[in-house]
Nucleic acid binder design. Structure first.
Lengths: 155, 155
DNA sequence: CTATAAGTGAGAATCACTATCGCTCGCGGG
DNA sequence: CCCGCGAGCGATAGTGATTCTCACTTATAG
């Protein structure tokens, strides 16, 4: 099978190291708070909100101001090192973006709100083909499927 | 050509009348403020935020409380008479949803923020096919392409 | 080692949206 | 046609996420 729902969480290999490197290359200093944010993102691998990141850091005993978390995420987003995901519940989530360009999309459960991911070559192909036909400079895309996750639909 | 970017704005035929009818059928009273919201949505046909709707109404001299606009939109959303679109700028936009099930997706310009729409049969087919293969009860989907609109990319 | 500007963080400000609550009015029964 | 009641309204307070401000800290070039 080419595509299937799975719980969020990619291999992550060394996204964190890559991100640090890109930050440096873009002329940014390294700092403990920002590195901590990068590390948490890399460790979790899945969609996280700014608050979740801050909470995670606090649990680790590394208090980082929420403003700093937002700033780090904004910066990472500018450098295309993270992917923003807004599923419409008022909070934006972020996840590491792999430089390979390989990416996935999301399934959002309407009842429990849980997010999972999938990837599908055919879908990517359809989008790429479509983008070529549009009179538009397409740079990226997001696909969100909504429905009931296995747990909720069986309950 | 099967698909092409165009400015937002569908024929609209008589979405407003249809919506009113559905509201009545669902056991809701008719009221001037809510009808006004429906009318604005139907008239514009394109993605509108709650605030934009309220402003439009105020310009028409029909002041409608912002809370009422939100309530009307929530109701319309529950009845699947509108489609929510969250392009990630902190405000949710709505547009009429046509009962035919026919729908379109959106292009968001990263520089000017303008939203336009497109439809593509192949994309729909890819998503439908994909949904069938996933272990997930897929009920709907959103696709957002990001990039530079013709105006911005030529500038 | 030192200057300096990037980066930090506490808290205020903003903004979209939701909850509250007394008042209004559409509408079915009389 | 009139009445009563509960759906609906709207001003306003509240909430929660995100951004702004500003004085303080610290990484790094020289």
């Amino acid at each position: 099978m080419k595509s299937e729902a799975r719980s969020v969480g990619l291999p992550t290999t060394d996204w964190a190291a890559h991100a640090e490197q890109e930050l440096k290359r873009a002329g940014h200093r390294s700092s403990a708070p920002r590195s901590a944010v990068v590390e948490v993102l890399g460790r979790q691998g899945c969609v996280l909100s700014a608050r979740e990141i801050a909470d995670e850091l606090r649990a680790d005993g590394r208090d980082v101001g929420i403003a700093t978390v937002y700033r780090a995420l904004e910066l990472l987003d500018e450098l295309h090192l993270v992917q923003r995901l807004d599923v419409g519940e008022g909070t934006v989530r972020y996840e590491p973006a792999h430089p390979s360009g390989e990416h996935h999309h999301h399934l959002v459960c309407d009842s429990c709100g849980r997010v999972s991911s999938f990837e599908d070559r055919d879908l990517e192909r359809a989008i790429a083909h479509l983008a070529g036909r549009l009179d538009y400079q397409v740079g990226g895309h997001d696909v969100v499927l909504r429905g009931a996750c296995p747990a909720c639909s069986s309950a």
